[in-house]
Simulated assay, not measured.
Amino acid sequence: MAVTIPDHLFGKLPFYDVVDTDDMVVVDLHNRPDLTNIRGALQGGLVATLIDIAAGRLAVKYAGHLAGAATSDMTIHFLAPIMTGPARATATLVRAGRRSIVVAVDVIDVGADRHAARATVSFAVLEPR
């Protein structure tokens, strides 16, 4: 698997690309001791970051040539801790408009075969620079 952004902090965590198509983006984050909370679960803020990365990568595909997309709202329902890992975020398009894009993201703990989180992320479509 390729590291999502090699020369960035995200490449050091690292986030791994699993699937990247026009319809879906799937990104993994491996669970390791320096990324866990005191109970041994992947830290929730990192799960939120994983969700934002997967959703954002899909949103920019629908934003248009030279435009961008900025997260404007994110709702996450944490369903179960990610104890085994990797955490796998699967982003799918809900709606793409001229000014906003909405993406759904499901996160599973691959090793435990358990649904860990469900999120909806809204993006504002930015004007081209």
Score class of each variant (00 low, 15 high):
50 L>F: 13
58 L>C: 01
121 V>H: 04
26 V>R: 05
113 D>P: 03
74 M>R: 10
17 D>I: 12
6 P>K: 13
86 P>C: 03
117 A>I: 03
68 G>S: 00
96 A>I: 09
8 H>F: 14
70 A>V: 09
21 T>S: 14
13 L>P: 09
82 I>N: 02
68 G>P: 03
95 R>N: 08
70 A>N: 10
102 V>C: 09
125 V>N: 04
87 A>T: 03
14 P>L: 06
47 V>N: 06
64 G>R: 03
77 H>E: 12
17 D>A: 00
25 V>I: 15
91 A>S: 15
126 L>F: 00
49 T>R: 10
30 H>T: 13
81 P>H: 02
46 L>R: 03
37 N>K: 08
77 H>S: 14
22 D>T: 05
49 T>L: 14
43 Q>I: 06
75 T>K: 13
39 R>G: 06
4 T>C: 10
15 F>T: 04
47 V>G: 10
80 A>Y: 08
98 R>W: 10
84 T>P: 02
108 I>W: 08
108 I>L: 03
63 A>V: 08
35 L>Y: 01
124 A>M: 08
22 D>F: 02
61 K>E: 11
30 H>G: 14
116 A>K: 04
56 G>M: 11
91 A>F: 11
40 G>E: 15
60 V>C: 07
61 K>C: 06
27 V>C: 08
81 P>I: 01
52 D>I: 04
16 Y>F: 14
64 G>M: 13
14 P>E: 06
115 H>V: 09
12 K>Y: 00
10 F>K: 07
34 D>E: 15
98 R>Q: 13
75 T>V: 04
29 L>D: 05
5 I>H: 14
84 T>Y: 01
15 F>L: 15
94 V>E: 11
73 D>Y: 07
